[in-house]
Design a protein around this nucleic acid. Structure first.
Lengths: 251, 251
DNA sequence: GTTGTTCCTCAAGACATCGTCAAGATCCCG
DNA sequence: CGGGATCTTGACGATGTCTTGAGGAACAAC
């Protein structure tokens, strides 16, 4: 067995700007983590193979090899979580929505404390989900208190930012549409009745028609389909809704 | 029956990735369970014989011996419940629907809480009846939300997702058909009268003909037979319906 | 073997559910 | 206060599902 049994978490930082990497090293080591540094993409990949980190902090704008490429490589050779550093907000969608995406991101300028918190959140997530060559880093239904939840192969949901990215591009959802997708994707195995969804999305005290759930679900599906997300929500006729792409009513 | 009288529940984890097994060990021990680890299929089988666990957590993708093979072996040498870890959603149906299938499943990445909850749900299920393919008896009113219910050799039922898997493939049932199968399979030894089934499936206030039960039962049988599930429901002439394939034995 | 009962199966019409569209009401932001 | 987005509600069609009835098969009793 090659896996190293270690007490402290190991973090690999792939970052070309020395000020940033130094800062991160100081912060993470102060938090009791072991830090490995790399300045370029190829160096980072080699370091990942060698030191087997638990989390990789990866700058998107690396000279030479693109950060996205590095991330994709990392996915096939390591099971570490990837925390992406991005300079501009509009880069995030590309990183998050790709099939081989990051597990979380931080935009520059960032506070060291925030990076530390997010790394620790990633460390709390269960390990071992990347079976070498598997396309999706996070299969549907990941229970993530922090970061990004991958709803389906091409649909990712950022609960914190209340944003949904489909095939690399953000999709504008209304409040109710987002809450519906959030509710359904949070427990992907369960069939949620209209009443349950209504309670969850609208709040307990509400006398409205359950039919409203239908309409919003229809709008949600239309938007996701138009964005190339495929079928995300399945109808269970006579009961409610559930995650999945099986068209027919099961049960 | 070699029921071991012990205070704490014992869980065997068969998993080759050390990170996952470590995580599971930590979570389950924190929940007050005794944990035994094994990294390979043969080791796991030996450990199961030796330590007689109550629940086995089994990775589907083990190197060498396949997880399905390990599961089949476990069934003949142990009466433990099997919780399967699968990486991808579409593997589930195969694992769950097979003759020797898992009792529940969790998809990676899993939340530690979920694994703990599902293990405890399995521990609440009655012991000693599951071995050798016999359907597990869940007394009425028991925690029915727990895991997969094996209806017959080739038919499995996921109450939470309202899904029925026959011979490794999902089968589309209508609401009433599913509820009928659910009712009959929930207490497999009992003969349920048409009135009982009607109350259970339709709800108390209903004036319809009992004949409707016949028709839906007929449709249910046809679908299960067509999917290769064999005869699942038996008629007890003059009384009602019961699980099993024996035609008309009076109960 | 005959008879009456019970059950299965088939088919067709009645019914319910769901998806979608559109119009009006409401909320929110400037 | 005005304009735009968003939500609700109603209507309608398509599709799926349920019920009902009838014919016939299996079964038990005689």
């Amino acid at each position: 067995m090659v896996a190293v049994d270690r007490a402290v978490a190991r973090v690999l930082v792939i970052e070309d700007t020395e000020e940033i990497s130094d800062l991160l090293q100081a912060v993470l080591e102060a938090a009791g983590m072991e830090v490995v540094l790399a300045a370029t993409g190829p160096d980072g990949l080699a370091a990942a193979r060698e030191s087997r980190p638990d989390v990789v902090i990866l700058d998107l704008n690396l000279p030479g090899l693109d950060g996205v490429e590095v991330c994709r490589e990392l996915r096939t050779t390591s099971d570490a979580y990837v925390l992406m550093l991005t300079a501009r907000t509009d880069e995030i969608d590309r990183v998050v929505g790709l099939t081989v995406g990051a597990d979380d991101y931080v935009t520059k300028p960032f506070s060291p404390r925030e990076v530390q918190a997010r790394v620790q959140a990633l460390l709390r997530r269960p390990r071992g989900l990347v079976a070498l060559g598997a396309p999706a880093a996070v299969p549907p239904g990941a229970d993530s208190a922090a970061g990004i939840r991958r709803v389906s192969e091409r649909v990712a949901l950022d609960a914190e930012a209340r944003r949904v990215i489909v095939a690399g591009a953000p999709v504008t959802l209304t409040r109710i549409e987002f809450d519906l997708l959030d509710a359904v994707s949070e427990n992907p195995r369960r069939v949620l009745s209209r009443s349950q969804l209504r309670d969850r999305v609208w709040g307990g005290d509400w006398l409205a028609d359950d039919h409203a759930v239908d309409v919003h679900m229809s709008n949600l599906r239309r938007k996701l389909r138009a964005a190339g997300g495929g079928d995300v929500v399945a109808t269970v006729r006579g009961v409610g809704y559930r995650m999945g792409d099986e068209p027919g009513a099961r049960g």
